[in-house]
Design a protein around this nucleic acid. Structure first.
Length: 207
DNA sequence: CAGCTGATGGGCT
DNA sequence: GCCCATCAGCTGG
Protein backbone atom coordinates (compact mmCIF):
# COMPACT_ATOMS: atom_id res chain seq x y z
CA UNK A 1 0.00 0.00 0.00
CA UNK A 2 1.33 3.42 -0.95
CA UNK A 3 2.43 5.68 1.87
CA UNK A 4 0.05 8.65 1.82
CA UNK A 5 -0.05 12.35 2.70
CA UNK A 6 -0.90 11.50 6.29
CA UNK A 7 2.34 9.59 6.60
CA UNK A 8 4.55 12.21 4.97
CA UNK A 9 3.03 15.17 6.76
CA UNK A 10 3.74 13.82 10.24
CA UNK A 11 5.72 16.25 12.33
CA UNK A 12 8.54 13.97 13.47
CA UNK A 13 10.80 13.92 10.43
CA UNK A 14 13.51 11.90 12.14
CA UNK A 15 10.98 9.20 12.88
CA UNK A 16 9.78 9.23 9.26
CA UNK A 17 13.38 8.90 8.06
CA UNK A 18 13.77 5.90 10.33
CA UNK A 19 10.50 4.34 9.19
CA UNK A 20 11.50 4.69 5.54
CA UNK A 21 14.31 2.19 6.06
CA UNK A 22 13.11 -1.08 4.56
CA UNK A 23 10.33 0.56 2.55
CA UNK A 24 10.04 -0.07 -1.18
CA UNK A 25 10.56 2.88 -3.52
CA UNK A 26 9.08 2.49 -7.00
CA UNK A 27 9.33 4.59 -10.14
CA UNK A 28 7.29 3.97 -13.29
CA UNK A 29 8.84 6.24 -15.89
CA UNK A 30 9.07 5.97 -19.66
CA UNK A 31 7.32 2.60 -19.58
CA UNK A 32 9.92 1.15 -17.21
CA UNK A 33 9.29 0.06 -13.64
CA UNK A 34 12.18 0.05 -11.20
CA UNK A 35 12.22 -0.65 -7.47
CA UNK A 36 14.67 -0.55 -4.59
CA UNK A 37 14.41 -1.33 -0.91
CA UNK A 38 15.51 1.81 0.93
CA UNK A 39 18.57 1.13 3.11
CA UNK A 40 19.89 4.63 3.86
CA UNK A 41 18.18 7.97 4.56
CA UNK A 42 19.20 11.38 5.87
CA UNK A 43 16.91 13.90 7.57
CA UNK A 44 17.16 17.68 7.08
CA UNK A 45 15.20 19.60 9.66
CA UNK A 46 14.57 22.89 7.96
CA UNK A 47 14.97 26.34 9.42
CA UNK A 48 17.01 25.43 12.50
CA UNK A 49 19.26 22.95 10.69
CA UNK A 50 22.39 24.59 9.27
CA UNK A 51 22.90 21.69 6.87
CA UNK A 52 19.50 22.15 5.26
CA UNK A 53 18.85 24.10 2.08
CA UNK A 54 16.06 25.78 4.03
CA UNK A 55 18.33 26.81 6.92
CA UNK A 56 17.33 30.17 8.44
CA UNK A 57 14.13 30.08 6.45
CA UNK A 58 15.89 30.45 3.14
CA UNK A 59 13.21 30.42 0.44
CA UNK A 60 14.09 30.44 -3.26
CA UNK A 61 12.60 29.03 -6.45
CA UNK A 62 14.57 25.86 -5.85
CA UNK A 63 13.69 25.29 -2.20
CA UNK A 64 10.06 26.43 -2.39
CA UNK A 65 8.78 22.86 -2.64
CA UNK A 66 10.23 22.10 0.80
CA UNK A 67 7.74 24.55 2.29
CA UNK A 68 4.74 22.64 1.00
CA UNK A 69 2.96 19.96 2.96
CA UNK A 70 4.65 16.53 3.07
CA UNK A 71 4.36 14.01 0.24
CA UNK A 72 6.21 15.69 -2.63
CA UNK A 73 9.61 15.08 -4.20
CA UNK A 74 12.40 17.65 -3.86
CA UNK A 75 15.03 17.05 -6.51
CA UNK A 76 18.08 19.21 -7.07
CA UNK A 77 21.38 19.18 -8.93
CA UNK A 78 24.57 18.91 -6.96
CA UNK A 79 28.12 19.54 -8.21
CA UNK A 80 26.64 20.23 -11.64
CA UNK A 81 26.41 16.50 -12.23
CA UNK A 82 24.12 14.55 -9.91
CA UNK A 83 20.41 14.81 -9.19
CA UNK A 84 19.55 13.97 -5.57
CA UNK A 85 16.08 12.71 -4.60
CA UNK A 86 14.44 13.95 -1.40
CA UNK A 87 11.05 13.50 0.21
CA UNK A 88 9.30 16.57 1.59
CA UNK A 89 7.85 15.93 5.05
CA UNK A 90 5.95 17.74 7.80
CA UNK A 91 3.27 20.43 7.54
CA UNK A 92 3.08 23.38 5.18
CA UNK A 93 5.69 26.05 5.98
CA UNK A 94 7.86 23.60 7.92
CA UNK A 95 10.51 22.88 5.27
CA UNK A 96 11.77 19.45 6.29
CA UNK A 97 13.04 16.82 3.84
CA UNK A 98 14.60 13.38 3.75
CA UNK A 99 17.36 12.46 1.31
CA UNK A 100 17.34 8.91 -0.02
CA UNK A 101 21.00 7.91 -0.03
CA UNK A 102 20.96 4.27 -1.07
CA UNK A 103 18.77 1.30 -1.95
CA UNK A 104 18.93 -2.39 -2.58
CA UNK A 105 17.83 -3.13 -6.17
CA UNK A 106 14.81 -5.45 -6.43
CA UNK A 107 12.97 -4.80 -9.71
CA UNK A 108 14.11 -3.56 -13.11
CA UNK A 109 17.79 -4.14 -12.49
CA UNK A 110 18.57 -4.22 -16.23
CA UNK A 111 16.91 -0.84 -16.67
CA UNK A 112 18.81 0.62 -13.75
CA UNK A 113 22.11 -0.66 -15.10
CA UNK A 114 21.36 0.84 -18.49
CA UNK A 115 20.53 4.22 -16.95
CA UNK A 116 23.78 4.08 -14.98
CA UNK A 117 25.85 2.93 -17.94
CA UNK A 118 27.11 -0.08 -16.03
CA UNK A 119 26.39 -3.80 -15.66
CA UNK A 120 23.62 -5.32 -13.48
CA UNK A 121 26.12 -7.09 -11.25
CA UNK A 122 27.71 -3.80 -10.21
CA UNK A 123 27.50 -3.62 -6.41
CA UNK A 124 27.44 0.16 -6.62
CA UNK A 125 24.36 0.22 -8.87
CA UNK A 126 22.15 1.99 -6.31
CA UNK A 127 24.70 2.98 -3.67
CA UNK A 128 24.99 6.70 -2.92
CA UNK A 129 22.36 9.42 -3.43
CA UNK A 130 23.47 10.38 -6.95
CA UNK A 131 23.60 6.79 -8.04
CA UNK A 132 20.20 5.64 -6.70
CA UNK A 133 18.47 8.65 -8.18
CA UNK A 134 20.04 8.04 -11.56
CA UNK A 135 19.24 4.31 -11.48
CA UNK A 136 15.63 5.14 -10.64
CA UNK A 137 15.39 7.56 -13.57
CA UNK A 138 14.99 10.67 -11.44
CA UNK A 139 15.63 14.01 -13.16
CA UNK A 140 15.43 17.65 -12.13
CA UNK A 141 12.01 17.89 -13.77
CA UNK A 142 10.63 15.54 -11.10
CA UNK A 143 11.03 18.13 -8.37
CA UNK A 144 7.59 18.88 -6.97
CA UNK A 145 6.00 15.66 -8.21
CA UNK A 146 3.53 13.96 -5.85
CA UNK A 147 4.62 10.77 -4.14
CA UNK A 148 1.01 9.64 -4.06
CA UNK A 149 0.64 9.45 -7.85
CA UNK A 150 1.43 6.69 -10.33
CA UNK A 151 4.97 7.65 -11.38
CA UNK A 152 6.94 7.77 -8.14
CA UNK A 153 5.81 6.30 -4.83
CA UNK A 154 6.90 4.40 -1.72
CA UNK A 155 5.27 1.43 -0.02
CA UNK A 156 5.72 -0.15 3.37
CA UNK A 157 8.10 -3.14 3.18
CA UNK A 158 8.97 -5.88 5.62
CA UNK A 159 9.18 -4.40 9.08
CA UNK A 160 12.73 -3.87 10.31
CA UNK A 161 13.61 -4.47 13.98
CA UNK A 162 14.65 -1.21 15.65
CA UNK A 163 18.04 -2.70 16.51
CA UNK A 164 18.81 -3.09 12.79
CA UNK A 165 18.54 0.64 12.14
CA UNK A 166 21.63 2.63 13.05
CA UNK A 167 21.84 6.43 13.40
CA UNK A 168 25.07 8.18 12.32
CA UNK A 169 26.17 11.68 11.44
CA UNK A 170 25.34 12.93 7.98
CA UNK A 171 27.67 12.77 4.98
CA UNK A 172 29.21 15.72 3.15
CA UNK A 173 27.81 18.49 5.35
CA UNK A 174 30.98 19.71 7.07
CA UNK A 175 30.05 23.28 6.14
CA UNK A 176 27.21 23.08 8.70
CA UNK A 177 29.46 23.47 11.76
CA UNK A 178 28.17 21.72 14.86
CA UNK A 179 25.05 20.57 13.01
CA UNK A 180 27.29 18.35 10.87
CA UNK A 181 27.58 16.06 13.89
CA UNK A 182 23.86 15.48 14.46
CA UNK A 183 22.85 11.79 14.16
CA UNK A 184 20.34 12.32 11.37
CA UNK A 185 21.52 9.62 8.97
CA UNK A 186 19.90 6.20 9.23
CA UNK A 187 21.32 3.01 7.77
CA UNK A 188 20.23 -0.60 7.64
CA UNK A 189 22.78 -2.57 9.61
CA UNK A 190 25.20 -4.68 7.59
CA UNK A 191 23.54 -3.99 4.26
CA UNK A 192 26.09 -3.93 1.46
CA UNK A 193 24.27 -1.21 -0.50
CA UNK A 194 24.72 1.42 2.20
CA UNK A 195 27.09 4.17 1.01
CA UNK A 196 30.39 5.08 2.63
CA UNK A 197 33.13 2.73 3.75
CA UNK A 198 31.94 -0.35 5.62
CA UNK A 199 34.65 0.34 8.15
CA UNK A 200 33.20 3.72 9.10
CA UNK A 201 29.68 2.34 9.16
CA UNK A 202 30.72 -0.45 11.50
CA UNK A 203 32.47 2.02 13.75
CA UNK A 204 29.18 3.92 13.97
CA UNK A 205 27.34 0.73 14.93
CA UNK A 206 29.58 0.21 17.94
CA UNK A 207 29.08 3.65 19.44
C1' DC B 1 43.29 -0.16 0.96
C1' DA B 2 43.12 5.39 1.73
C1' DG B 3 43.39 9.70 -0.09
C1' DC B 4 43.10 13.12 -3.61
C1' DT B 5 41.04 15.45 -7.65
C1' DG B 6 38.72 16.83 -11.94
C1' DA B 7 34.24 16.97 -13.93
C1' DT B 8 30.41 20.26 -14.62
C1' DG B 9 26.30 23.51 -14.16
C1' DG B 10 22.32 25.56 -11.52
C1' DG B 11 21.56 28.60 -7.74
C1' DC B 12 22.57 32.29 -5.11
C1' DT B 13 25.41 36.49 -3.17
C1' DG C 1 32.23 34.25 -9.28
C1' DC C 2 31.91 30.89 -5.81
C1' DC C 3 29.66 27.13 -3.67
C1' DC C 4 28.07 22.81 -3.41
C1' DA C 5 23.53 16.88 0.83
C1' DT C 6 28.80 13.47 -5.34
C1' DC C 7 31.30 10.07 -8.10
C1' DA C 8 34.85 7.64 -10.70
C1' DG C 9 39.33 7.20 -11.63
C1' DC C 10 43.75 7.66 -10.36
C1' DT C 11 47.70 7.75 -7.22
C1' DG C 12 50.90 5.78 -3.69
C1' DG C 13 51.29 2.50 0.13
Amino acid sequence: MKLDENFYSQSDTLNIAKQLIGCVWTTRLGGKTTQVKIVETEAYLGITDKASHSANGRLTARTAVMYKSGGLAYVYLIYGIHCLFNIVTNAKDIPHAILIRAGEPTTGIETMAKRRGTNPQNRGLTKGPGNVAKAMGIELSHSGISLCGNQVWIEKGDSIPAAEIIATKRIGVDYAGEDALLPYRFILKNNIYVSGSSKQNEAAIKT
